[in-house]
Amino acid sequence: MARLAMVIDTKKCVGCMDCVVACKTENNVPEHLDRDWLVYETRGKFPTLHMEIRSERCNHCDNPPCVYCCPTGASHVHDFGGVVLVDYDKCIGCKACLASCPYDARFINPNGYAEKCTFCIHRTEKGDDPACVAVCPTHCMYFGDIDDPNSEVSRLLASRNHHALLPAAGTKPQIYYLT
């Protein structure tokens, strides 16, 4: 079974937000709402600073509380690659999943249902990269199957230091940040 994941090289990311714009156009994300976003984390005292720039989105957790809490089964784990999705026709907009996500990765679409990053399932099922990955001018995002030890993502994780977000929250996030 494939386990799709994203690996993002924070050393290369320049925080340009191209990934956000690309997601907006690819997926028709409504104005003023973001499926992905940038976080700039600066530590230290000028001029001895360190900055980590992260392109963030739903982590497609292996242990997804948003799926567990959903009363209708609208939030579910897709057969393909463990991607966490929302079936808009089942969603009642109760927002439990919004509250249950430690990454605040979801929002309510103006049409009433919960929405978030889909790992561009319509593209990735066909073997294409997600829109954000495909657009990134620094080539800092990688997408693939981490169950396959020979995939680019697996090799990067094996060879580079990395971290995921809020591991203590127990969600087993599947977006990895190379440092």
């Binding site: 567990y68 959903c70 969603c91 009642i92 907009g93 109760c94 249902y113």
Partner: peptide
């Protein structure tokens, strides 16, 4: 009133989600 997708409220009763307290 809190539901954002009100017309779909019946979806609550088409399934029982064992892990969901709301269900």
């Amino acid at each position: 009133l809190d539901l954002e997708h009100k017309l779909y409220v019946w979806r609550l009763y088409t399934t029982f989600e064992i892990a969901s307290p709301m269900s």
